[in-house]
């Protein structure tokens, strides 16, 4: 493999990996703090992309220029807010009523709502059954590094994702509310007794995670230029898988897991002949192996069941 191709593939992997990481962070937060696996998270990702599509359409009609910085920032903010709102709604109407129900029920209800969300987008967006072209929200000149032509969207996605993940890490590690989140994750009852408003923590957690997931959808649109109503399913699986690989509940593990999964997939595609048709199989087999042999994640210690 020549150096240029290698570099190109490296960037592809980084872009894919960081997108998985953005989704995985949500899964891991929800599990760590609220103890649910939210299978609707992939649909939040998908809806993020569609919100970006629609909002950019409206803004252009309102006089913004396509490809300008103000437009991009406005769309980004809109996606973050929309993601947050979806998260709050999910908490209120899906997750909260199911508190205390068996795990299997909570899991199934998030599956159910994910179907509803996916179908709703398909039916409500005009011509929603077909892939939608995603506008080029940010006009950037192609960058050349060492003779390699690089898609600027890729760099933009990577940088933006890194900033967002950094922001989340800051919130969790440094702010008071972040401390509440960590406390609730560690011991819900103790947190409650210490006067932390656990309900609020849950809402904020779902809002934060969902906002990041929605932005991941925006990134996906930017990088590939095309979005479709059913792209949330694969995102759910990959994001959850990445979170599991990193150890559910561990935010930094989720980031590492996402990157690892991205690199592995690109590796499979580029090394194995006809690899793209086996891309998913390989990543799923890795996930199953990981679940079976390292259920606490690649960094986790062996867990002992509480008796």
């Amino acid at each position: 493999m020549s150096g240029e191709v290698f570099f190109q593939q490296f960037l592809n992997a980084l872009g894919l990996g960081i997108m998985y990481a953005l989704i995985a962070v949500g899964f891991t937060l929800f599990f760590g703090v609220i103890e649910v696996v939210n299978f609707a998270h992939g649909e939040v990702f998908m809806m993020g992309a569609f919100v970006a599509l629609i909002v950019s359409g409206i803004l252009v009609a309102a006089g913004f220029t396509m490809g300008s910085l103000p437009l991009f920032v406005a769309v980004l903010v809109a996606v973050l807010i929309a993601g947050g709102i979806i998260g709050v709604l999910l908490e209120k109407f899906i997750v909260r009523p199911m508190r205390g129900a068996p795990d299997i029920m909570t899991l199934l209800i998030t599956l159910g709502i994910s179907i509803v969300m996916r179908e709703a987008v398909m039916l409500l967006v005009p011509n929603g059954r077909n892939p939608q072209p995603f506008p080029n929200l940010m006009d950037l000149d192609s960058i050349q590094i060492g003779g390699v032509l690089i898609k600027p969207e890729a760099i933009l996605s990577i940088v933006l994702s890194a900033i967002l993940i950094g922001g989340l890490a800051y919130i969790i590690e440094k702010t008071t509310f972040g401390r509440y989140i960590r406390a609730t994750a560690q011991d819900r009852e103790a947190a409650m007794m210490m006067g932390i408003n656990v309900k609020k923590v849950f809402i904020v957690t779902l809002a934060l995670g969902s906002a990041l997931g929605a932005v991941a959808g925006l990134m996906n649109g930017l990088s590939y230029g095309i979005i479709k109503f059913d792209m949330g399913f694969a995102a759910s699986i990959k994001g959850f898988a990445a979170a599991v690989v990193g150890g559910l509940g561990n935010v930094y593990g989720a980031i590492a897991g996402g990157l690892l999964l991205g690199f592995l997939e690109i590796l499979v595609v580029s090394v194995i002949p006809d690899g793209s048709s086996y891309q998913d199989i390989v990543s799923f087999i890795i996930v199953i192996m990981c679940l079976v042999f390292r259920p606490a994640g690649i960094f986790g210690e062996r867990a002992y069941e509480k008796v």
């Binding site: 899991l107 599991v244 199989i281 799923f284 087999i285 199953i288 079976v292 259920p295």
Partner: peptide
């Protein structure tokens, strides 16, 4: 045999997709 709950859900989804891909 080694996983349950959420993890089993993921494994079974992956299994279904693998079979379909095959």
């Amino acid at each position: 045999l080694r996983v349950k709950g959420h993890y089993l859900a993921l494994v079974t989804i992956a299994f279904g997709l693998i079979v379909q891909q095959l």
